[in-house]
């Protein structure tokens, strides 16, 4: 029985792996959501705006977790699906109040879910390679963000592109570490009217079979 299992492991290592599962942590950069001035209409013939107070909104940088499932369609090309969960803070700084109310930073925690799909191109032998394997990837996703009480859901699209490296180790080179960096373009979500670029770094433990 033991000999049989060893043979199976050898077979995994020696045949081309088709599936890759990975999970780990991410760190997404912050986003400046822009300024918005609360305005009153001044009592002038032109009715020019008069500042009531000024707000500036930021989605702060935040860590998160992510899981990915990949399937090699060729030796070098894999398609992947993933789920990412993060809880960044939406922070609004309020300044320049007309009656000199104290400046303040109001905030709330946003629950952020990203469901995405990617195409991943592997170099240096792709799925069969041992040791270090660089890769490039790109794809799109569905962004779902819930404000703090969960009653308001914001939806948007996400597009991403990046690159990274996998290091395969262990028996049959089936276990690996994957690190990557990417640019994530968010269209919608909490900032329903804008499109923003978010840098993302990620590190995973990966298993291929």
């Amino acid at each position: 029985m033991g000999a049989l299992m060893m043979s199976a492991a050898d077979a995994v290592a020696q045949s081309s792996p088709r599936i890759e599962i990975s999970g780990g942590g991410i760190f997404a950069g912050g986003v400046d959501l822009g300024n918005r001035t609360a305005q009153l209409t001044s009592n002038t013939p032109a009715g020019t705006p008069s500042t009531f107070f000024v707000t500036g909104s930021d989605m702060k940088s935040a860590p998160g977790v992510q899981g990915r499932l990949g399937f090699f369609v060729t030796r070098s090309l894999a398609i992947e699906g993933g789920v990412r969960i993060a809880r960044p803070k939406l922070e609004v700084s309020i300044t320049n109040d007309v009656e000199s109310a104290a400046n303040i930073r109001a905030d709330e925690t946003v629950s952020q879910y990203l469901f995405d799909g990617s195409a991943v191109w592997h170099f240096k032998g792709g799925r069969d390679a041992a040791g270090t394997v660089p890769f490039l990837f790109g794809g799109a996703g569905y962004l779902r963000e819930l404000h703090e009480e969960g009653a308001l859901v914001e939806e948007g699209a996400e597009y991403h592109a990046g690159g990274g490296v996998k290091w395969w180790h262990g028996p049959g080179r089936a276990i690996g570490i994957r690190v990557e960096a990417s640019i994530s373009i968010r269209d919608g979500g909490v900032d329903a009217e804008g499109r923003h670029v978010v840098p993302v770094a990620a590190g995973y433990v990966a298993w291929r079979f």
Binding site: F53, L90, E91, V92, I94, D97, E99, S100, A101, A102, I104, R105, A106, D107, E108, H147, E148, E149, A151, L152
Partner: peptide, 18 residues
């Protein structure tokens, strides 16, 4: 009392209340 801002961002949902 002094003019004061609330320290939390309040999200207004569609068809509901915060």
């Amino acid at each position: 009392f002094k003019a004061t801002f609330h320290d939390k961002v309040v999200a207004v949902p569609k068809g509901g209340g915060a």
